[in-house]
Design a protein around this nucleic acid. Structure first.
Length: 423
RNA sequence: GGAGAGGUGCUGGAGUGGCCGAACAGGCACGCCUGGAAAGCGUGUAGGGGCGCAAGUCCCUCGUGGGUUCGAAUCCCACCCUCUCCGCCA
């Protein structure tokens, strides 16, 4: 969430950025509500101050008649306070709702554009492999290896669920292990996190109220299944003041992610590119505002390291203004090549969210032990999303007979260098 | 899930209607003392918000949200959380 003060002082910038994002925000209404709020607040506080003084006098007074007069008077003042206060609350509630609906501002360096077609490919690394046979998509390769079982996944849970088996299941575990090892070696602290969070937590991280349709929730209790570990990491320090000297905090966790994907019913149904449950290794940073630009670069380096280690062709894409997520001011995607599907798969999204989430989640830090608290900047990146990375490994390193020649780095984790179809 | 106890500042812990944004102790910071230190003494030590150029000033916050009252940390209601015992369980 943006601060009211920021909107007040930068109304034109906010309006402009909303246009860039291709969304609308009720900036004028917000400014109006803010004005009303402050007026009402002044009136209420003035009356409260008056009552506080009078109440003290009543407590100290010996004179019975005098007290009665004042009590009667204050009773009226109290009623007036109640009246104004309920108006104030109404205004504050609407203001809060509107404020929660406004996305983050856009970093000036972000290329303009209405949608993903204007995203900019910053760099492409690794040659797209040339096959002397038609490469199979993973929905053929997986069953051929007896490693992906679509039918039974669907039987158990429904569309967009799947089962991994044998060497392919192990491959996923190996990838997770590799990623965690690489990132922890670089100083990111490993976490095990709850996969279910309270509604309040989902608000704090910006998933709610806007993206309710994408979330799974428990029917009886106040639990939402996380759509990404980012949500948990944002809430890790909710309502806290981080003491001086701790930042930057660099975290990593492997968690499942649960997504409704309601909007895309009928799209991308083939294979396991878009599913309701997948594993992801997530990177997360809390840092001082002055550091966040550098930290974003670090996160991008961490994310692209993985396809580099695996020898997967990938490209780095900068999202244009219209494709930015709600929380992000600047985002880079890492996409790996999928020769079977014949397209680039997004496996990471690295975003700087500035203090947008910190404000929403009421997280602050002290620059020095004596200094006042400020909001830290928060950044996140996948490092990487699992099924898609798995798909890419299978498809890129497939052999004519359907076996998969595993990348060097994975062999210690796999205990073999080849996945082969059963005899 | 059942029974009981409890949630106060950086920490411990007082406080059952006005003198309490909060005693006292500890911690921490600064100052005095000292050759230096310890001890001792003194001072300071929450967050948010409104108005103001500022100094400052006012409002709110004692788990959260309501209520009673001229006035609530203190009384009432609901909820959340923690602890102990029982039940259940990986």
């Amino acid at each position: 969430m943006l601060s009211m003060q920021f909107i007040r002082e930068n109304a034109d910038r906010v309006r402009h950025d909303m246009l860039l994002r291709n969304t609308a925000a009720p900036v004028d209404r917000i400014l109006q509500l803010d004005e009303e709020r402050r007026q009402l607040l002044q009136q209420v506080e003035h009356l409260r101050a008056r009552r506080n003084v009078a109440s003290k006098a009543i407590g100290a007074s010996r004179d019975r008649a005098e007290r009665e007069v004042q009590i009667t008077e204050m009773r009226l003042v109290g009623e007036e306070i109640d009246r104004l206060d309920s108006q104030l609350r109404k205004v504050e509630q609407e203001l809060q709702e509107k404020l929660l609906d406004v996305p983050n501002v856009v970093d000036p360096s972000v290329p303009p554009g209405p949608d993903e077609h204007s995203n900019v490919v910053v760099e492409q690394v690794g040659a797209i492999p040339a096959f002397d046979f038609p490469p199979r998509p993973h929905w053929e390769l997986g069953p051929l290896l007896d490693g992906i079982d679509f039918d039974r996944g669907v039987k158990m849970s429904g569309s967009r669920f799947f089962v991994l088996r044998g060497g392919v299941a192990r491959l996923q575990r190996a990838l997770i292990q590799l990623m965690l090892n690489e990132h922890t070696a670089a100083g990111f602290t490993e976490h095990y996190l709850p996969d279910m969070l309270s509604e309040e937590s989902l608000y704090a991280s910006g998933q709610l109220p806007k993206f309710r349709d994408n979330l799974y929730r428990d029917a009886e209790e106040d639990y939402y299944w996380i759509p990404t570990a980012e949500v948990a990491f944002v809430n890790l320090y909710r309502n806290e003041i981080i003491p001086a000297g701790r930042l930057p905090l660099r975290f990593v966790a492997h968690t499942p992610c649960f997504r409704r994907e309601k909007m895309s019913a009928g799209r991308d149904v083939r294979g396991i590119k878009r599913v309701h449950q997948f594993e992801k290794v997530e990177l997360f940073v809390y840092c001082e505002p002055e550091q966040s630009e550098g930290e974003l670069e670090l996160l991008v380096r961490r994310a692209r390291l993985i396809p580099e280690l695996l020898g997967l062709p990938y490209r780095l894409v900068q999202l244009c203004t219209g494709d930015l997520g709600f929380n992000a001011t600047k985002t880079f995607d890492v996409e790996v090549w999928s020769p079977g599907v014949g397209e680039w798969l997004e496996v990471s999204s690295a975003s700087n969210c500035l203090d947008f989430q910190a404000r929403r989640a009421n997280i602050r830090y002290r620059p020095t032990p004596e200094a006042g608290a400020r909001h830290p900047h928060m950044l996140n990146a996948s490092g990487l999303a699992l099924v898609r990375t798995l798909i890419a490994v299978l498809e890129n390193f497939q052999q004519p007979d359907g076996s998969v020649l595993l990348p060097e780095v994975l062999r210690p984790y796999m205990g073999t260098d080849l996945l082969t179809p059963p005899a």
